[in-house]
């Protein structure tokens, strides 16, 4: 995965509490400019849904589930 995607994932799903924007705003902005959050995995195989759940970002998780991202990475 390219580093831009990793940064995107990290920013969007896991580091929301470090910024001034809410995770929803970040995610919506990223999706709005065309980032494919469903296909992006970090080197540990974690996608945005997994990271949101692991770090307890319920608002971000709710948004991701509501958006119904692609099921391409399902195993």
């Amino acid at each position: 995965m390219c580093s831009l995607r990793r940064v995107t994932l990290s920013l969007a799903a896991a580091s929301a509490h470090h910024g001034t924007l809410s995770p929803q705003v970040r995610l919506e902005a990223l999706i709005g400019v065309g980032f494919d959050l469903s296909g992006a995995l970090d080197e540990y195989g974690q996608n945005a849904v997994f990271l949101s759940a692991a770090y307890g970002h319920s608002a971000a998780l709710r948004l991701l589930l509501r958006l119904g991202l692609s099921a391409g990475e399902c195993r």
Partner: peptide, 22 residues
């Protein structure tokens, strides 16, 4: 499918959340 997604090593989002008390 989204909710059941697994990371490398077989961890589920539900297990990760539960293990950390979320």
């Amino acid at each position: 499918c989204l909710a059941d997604t697994r990371s490398h090593g077989g961890s589920t989002a539900a297990c990760a959340a539960a293990a950390r008390g979320h």
